[in-house]
């Protein structure tokens, strides 16, 4: 995974709460066995009208937000299904940061695994970012993972909290499987030491 430090970019405001992963990427696109190519299906149902045409009112169809690398949205983003395809679709579309008052747990983990930074900020600050993005064409936000800050072109500067381990992994682009495999001897020792062997085969 690519190392991550700082992203400055346009913000797409998706002013909705409880956005579930079925909306981020519908299940019909989960039949593919690849990791890439999901961006074109991102928010597919909201991007088009029932007649198949693009919905001009949907934020990602608005030319002002073309090229946005930051998504600002409502509480509990990414709830529902565990599908990592949701993170793959956001990443493939070009998003590197999602800012929300809260995230669903599995989705948040999936973001870390794919070089997307999920930033939790207080509701009123997220609201301010959403409104600024809607109001000004040249509005930009910077998410700085080194400093753990979010700042914007209007003078905002706030800190955000992030799990120290996840931060390190993102900053260095570490492969977490490789990290764990370095501790293989400890895993083997654990397997040996358990009073009942691991697993269901306790017969």
């Amino acid at each position: 995974m690519e190392a991550y430090s700082r992203v400055t970019g346009k913000v797409a405001p998706l002013d909705r709460g409880d956005v579930d992963t079925d909306q981020i990427i519908p299940a019909v696109h989960l039949k593919r066995v690849e990791r890439s190519g999901y961006g074109e299906f991102l928010f597919e149902r909201w991007r088009s009208l029932p007649n198949g045409e693009r919905d001009p009112d949907f934020v990602l169809n608005d030319p002002r937000f073309r090229g946005a690398t930051i998504l600002a949205t409502g509480r509990n983003f990414g709830c529902g299904s565990s599908r990592e395809h949701a993170a793959w679709a956001l990443q493939d579309y070009g998003f590197r940061v999602v800012i929300a008052p809260s995230f669903a747990d599995i989705f948040r983990n999936n973001c870390y695994q794919n070089g997307i930074l999920p930033v939790v900020l207080p509701e009123n600050i997220v609201r301010g970012i959403v409104e600024n993005a809607q109001a000004a064409v040249d509005y930009e936000v910077t998410a700085d993972l080194e400093q753990c800050t979010v700042s914007d072109s209007e003078g905002l500067r706030v800190e955000f909290a992030i799990d120290a381990f996840r931060r390190e992994c993102l900053l260095h682009g570490w492969d977490t499987i490789q990290l764990t495999l370095k501790q293989e001897d400890l895993i083997a020792a654990y397997e040996q030491a358990r009073d009942t062997p691991p697993g269901y085969t306790q017969r």
Partner: peptide
């Protein structure tokens, strides 16, 4: 018992372990 993403599935396949911060 909890759900995980595909990258974590790969991690569990390779290591039989999962990294978790306590909820």
């Amino acid at each position: 018992a909890f759900g995980i993403g595909t990258s974590e599935v790969e991690h569990v396949l390779a290591t039989q372990c999962i990294r978790q911060a306590p909820p």
